[in-house]
Design a protein around this nucleic acid. Structure first.
Lengths: 239, 239
DNA sequence: CGGTGGATTGAGTGGCGTCAACCTGAGTGG
DNA sequence: CCACTCAGGTTGACGCCACTCAATCCACCG
């Protein structure tokens, strides 16, 4: 089974045999995490970065008053704290949502890549730039869309991200997130999440039973969220 | 007068003489923009990136229904679309708020830097990572803070960012943003922006007359916003 | 001196928050 | 095999924050 980071990057640009070999080589140290376990904590200074091989994680921040914010969701193939290579200390906590398998990649290996493999280094940079583009899109959605639009936007995005690493097809995917967590993602109350989900169901845009989400009408769903996948940079061009 | 990008990067790590020379060399082509003029538009593919030498810009996105979102504010020293080196096409539009002076840096020069100057390349990467950290912080603020907290957070952040490039001191700075634009930043209505500003004034946290904002009580202001400057990475460490 | 952009204020409304109860299915232990 | 627990989802009642619509005020400027 091929490394999901390679899968993810090769969606965006061709990797050479050597580049693939280097990436494989850096992902030898593996660690497992249980649901709800912190992978890295705000304030820590890291000596390695964590590549998510399997499972879902959230990037989150807890307030003094106990409220939580989730500022990112990560899936297979995401380098959940690649930025800790240059940013110190960690600005936010990363927590396992499901059981997770992570590769711990030493910063020294990454620094080696920036020294000797400029194209591969640009691809790693790219991966953090896509994260940033997703953040911007969430900011747009949070500020300007209705809660239903915001949820629709999230569902469209996650479907494409999962599809690009072979984790979704036929307009449906496994979504292991409770409505309480979703509230922290969308910045609304858990009760209102429930009503928002029902709104999308009532409009026959999605079905969501157990952990399975199925998009019933991609066109109307994406239109309702002003969703344009361009920001995900899912095309293979020289970078 | 020294290049504000050098100023900004040297807050975070030492640059060598050669690195400074290279940066100076890439910023020779200058272009001016008038207020409200688009600098780069969503959907365009760039051959150069724009370094903001003077003025303020917004990164923004307009919806089908005419609503606007502002996902970032940029000031002197910010590379407003450095990510266009690797992301194609531009995901959002960048617009001048005040008169702006920009250096247009060819992507080929930047790619050269990634090939032959790994440390400088990491510093450019760092600058996009700080942008991303700011996005995450805005997401947190937008989702979990009251509108007053959110505004307080923005004011704290901008003060430190401006101070780090010599554009603010003594807890006050020039803020050339109308309440209507601020509404697009905060994701609330212009009327509510006004009431939120008055709330901060009533609490004697800030004064804001004309384009001048003065922070009257940094401690209470930052506490009211759960503001922790760590995410701005304003300390000089090897990167 | 009227026009214009921006700030301010008031009135009425609705989306979303809180609180609280209730339902369901899965897991556990007697 | 059933009572119990618990997490997660669902629903209703009620209130407030923030929205919209509108009018007014002010400073600046051609």
């Amino acid at each position: 089974m091929t490394n999901p980071l390679i899968l993810k990057l090769e969606q965006r640009d061709q990797l050479s045999v050597e580049e693939r070999r280097i990436l494989e080589g850096t992902t030898s140290r593996i660690k497992e995490f249980r649901p709800n376990e912190d992978i890295v904590r705000e304030g820590e200074t890291m000596e390695f970065s964590c590549l998510l091989l399997e499972g879902w994680t959230s990037r989150n921040k807890t307030l003094a008053n106990g409220r939580h914010a989730i500022t990112a969701l990560h899936v297979m193939g995401d380098f959940v704290d690649l930025h800790s290579l240059l940013l110190r200390p960690m600005d936010q906590t990363v927590t396992a949502i499901t059981p997770c398998r992570m590769a711990l990649v030493p910063h020294e290996s990454l620094r080696e890549i920036t020294r000797h493999h400029p194209h591969l280094a640009r691809m790693l940079w790219l991966s953090t730039l896509i994260d940033a583009a997703i953040h911007r899109q969430w900011l747009f959605a949070m500020g300007q869309l209705s809660s239903a639009g915001q949820l629709a936007h999230l569902i469209c995005e996650l479907y494409l991200r999962l599809q690009s690493v072979g984790q979704a097809r036929d307009l449906s995917f496994t979504f292991p997130i409770t409505q309480v967590l979703l509230a922290d993602v969308l910045g609304i109350s858990p009760v209102h999440v429930n009503r928002t989900v029902q709104e999308l169901r009532r409009e026959n845009l999605i079905t969501w039973t157990g952990m399975l989400i199925r998009i019933e009408d991609w066109d109307r769903l994406s239109r309702s969220a002003d969703f344009d996948p361009a920001y995900l940079n899912l095309s293979k061009v020289p970078r």
